[in-house]
Design a protein around this nucleic acid. Structure first.
Length: 591
RNA sequence: GGACCGGUAGUUCAGUUUGGUUAGAACGCCGCCCUGUCACGGCGGAGGUCGCGAGUUCGAGUCUCGUCCGGUCCGCCA
């Protein structure tokens, strides 16, 4: 038996025709004298009816169970009056079966596939092949495919060339821990799986491919999060003879188009915000602009204040005092505020000061707060004026080291918007631009904010003079508070590249060892170039509304980077290890 | 490396606060009945290493310690 129609194609047009369908028994309803199957294939459901008129077929149908794979044939008929199911595309008709073939039976499945029951993550991952049958996962992966097709179409029409780069390559200086692959032919040497194709794509620019893209698998051996997997996919893009403006407008159009084509969503314009402004107003470099709450720097008001919690950061260069006015914050209970205090504690904040505005016309008398008694009236007055407070507001304060204030208030801003349902729209894209070239790490060394191949917006001398003031043509595209992707104008000049590497304490020898081929490419007529990479999995997470990256990847890893389906990683056989010149020392519990 | 939540029937969970007879429910599964259901219905039944290991106790799903697994987060990662 061979199918003539997919399930969803069985509609009123076919009434009276004999057809055959195939698929899984999604649900069966056995009434003794009549049996119904909801038959499922990859595009829908259709009801097949078995009755004793076809004796053998009926007897066979009685033995069927959920998730059996069958072929069935029969005449399409309109459903009797009163039995139409409006929830199904095919609900007006049914197939009256005259034949049935069981192609494959199924053991009872360990969890139900309907939308009414929930399943734990562990079970889903162990039986991923069943989990992927569920409509939610089918929809997610189908959208993923549509989106990648749409992106490819767009780039292809713009004359981009898709080029693959190696997975077995060399460790790049990008900071994350590498996945290593031992070499059989070079004892003691290792390949590294790429953290990104950054160096290869720049090399391709030197090779004269002026527009390149690739859906690139990337590997980073770091701890996992809800939105991080050890292997993930980037849409990697690079262009020659362009400036940042060209990349930004290209990518804006690309993202607008893919949302339009696949979700019928009009994203509108992508506003731009500088890194500096974003940190000041939102505490992060990937602001969620759906959220109307903002941080206001109020440091200057407290320079002369007697309240040490505020006056100390007010007079410290590395500190800030940020105020966040929450309209209608009176809704928040004491319990919630205590929870928020614990919440910011997770990010290192020592406390969370707040002021409730009960009646702004009464000045200090109209406020309720544990801290106002420590603060001079004149400062309170200026504060209320600057914040333009209104009745019912609550104002939260973060005071202390700049990083801690930002790191704690930014997530608090998201949490409060969530709790009070403050989001103003469904989609809010933006570009964050003008990133600094370097920042200082904890040990006071310079580290690149983006990566060491990003071109600073200044001369070599200016860069050497004050590296921390250097701004770059780097740009991040942000959607709803998620960094979708980022890129930059690259260095194409060897002298500038060497200057940057020297500032990062990477000497010529180390540079040559790690990426001599790129330096060499720069020395042999490399055009100016710029590009970016889109985090493809995160894009799909946003587009599907998934809370976990695992829901947009067919076969993901657990938080400890294992695969519950295949049981990877596994042990290697002794002869494999020997071939690779690896001696396993065993696990030493003492260490 | 650290903090927190969870692990009990095939699945999702209750029971753990305050240790005490035979560990429950729903769905699923099995059997019987049922000719118009669509998350069909009715009756009956089977199904448990309470993650694992020690300890406390007359007695541990319940208390203590350790350990493994899953998840969320910090560190880490762009």
């Amino acid at each position: 038996m061979k199918r003539t129609h997919k399930c969803n194609q069985v509609t009123s047009d076919l009434i009276g025709q004999e057809i055959s369908v195939s698929g899984w028994i999604h649900r069966r309803r056995d009434h003794g004298g009549v049996i119904f199957f909801d038959l499922r294939d990859d595009n829908g459901l259709v009801q097949v009816v078995y009755n004793p008129d076809s004796k053998d077929t009926f007897a066979l149908a009685e033995t069927c169970r959920n998730e059996y794979v069958i072929f069935s044939k029969g005449i399409v008929q309109a459903r009797p009056e009163g039995t139409v199911n409006d929830n199904l595309v095919t609900g007006k008709v049914e197939i009256v079966a005259s034949g049935l073939e069981i192609v494959n039976s199924s053991q009872p499945i360990p969890f139900q596939l309907d939308e009414y029951s929930s399943v734990g993550e562990e079970t889903r991952l162990k039986y991923r092949f069943l989990d992927l049958r569920r409509a939610e996962m089918q929809d997610n992966l189908r959208l993923r495919s549509k989106v990648s097709t749409s992106l490819r179409n767009y780039l292809n029409t713009q004359d981009f060339v898709e080029i693959e780069t190696p997975l077995l390559t060399k460790a790049t200086p990008e900071g994350a821990r590498d996945y290593l692959v031992p070499s059989r032919t070079f004892p003691g040497s290792f390949f590294a799986l790429p953290q990104s194709p950054q160096l290869f794509k720049q090399t391709l620019m030197a090779s004269g491919f002026e527009k390149y893209y690739q859906f690139a698998k990337c590997f980073r051996d770091e701890d996992l999060r809800a939105d991080r997997q050890p292997e993930f996919t980037q849409l990697d893009i690079e262009l020659s003879f362009v400036e940042s403006e060209d990349v930004i407008s290209l990518i804006t159009e690309m993202i607008q188009k893919v949302f339009k084509e696949t979700l019928s969503v009009d994203l509108g314009e992508f506003p731009r915000i500088t890194y500096k402004e974003s940190i000041e107003k939102y505490g992060v470099d990937k602001p969620d602009l759906r959220n109307p709450l903002k941080l206001l720097e109020v440091k200057n008001l407290f320079k002369e204040c007697d309240f040490k919690v505020f006056s100390e950061p007010a007079n410290d260069e590395d500190s800030r005092i940020a105020a966040m006015r929450v309209p209608n914050g009176k809704m928040l209970t004491r319990k919630q505020i205590d929870d928020y205090t614990d919440f910011v504690g997770n990010y290192g904040a020592k406390g969370l000061a707040y002021i409730r505005v009960e009646d702004p016309s009464k000045g200090k008398e109209g406020l309720q707060s544990p801290i106002i008694k420590f603060i001079e009236d004149s400062i309170i007055d200026s504060l209320l004026a600057v914040l333009e407070v209104q009745e019912g507001d609550i104002i939260f304060f973060g005071a202390g080291k700049r990083n801690i204030v930002n790191d704690s208030l930014a997530p608090l801003r998201d949490l409060i918007a969530h709790d009070l349902d403050l989001l103003t729209c469904e989609w809010a894209p933006c570009w964050v631009i003008d990133f600094p070239m370097f920042e200082k790490n904890k040990s006071g060394e310079l580290t690149p904010l983006h990566h060491p191949f990003t071109s600073p917006n200044c001369s070599i001398d200016e860069l050497k003079e004050s590296p921390l003031d250097a701004v770059t043509d780097a740009y991040d595209v942000v959607l709803n508070g998620t960094e979708l992707g980022g890129g930059s104008v690259r260095i194409h000049d060897t002298k500038m590249q060497n200057t940057v590497l020297n500032l990062l304490n990477i000497d010529d020898k180390e540079a040559d060892e790690k990426f001599g081929f790129l330096i060499s490419a720069l020395q042999h007529g490399c055009p100016p170039h710029a590009g970016l990479a889109i985090g493809f999995d995160r894009l799909i997470m946003l587009m599907t509304g998934s809370d976990s990256i695992r829901d947009v990847i067919a076969f993901p890893k657990t938080q400890t980077a294992s695969c519950l389906l295949t049981d990877a990683p596994g042990q290697a056989a002794q002869d494999q290890l020997e071939e690779l010149h690896i001696r396993f020392q065993g696990l030493d519990k003492e260490e």
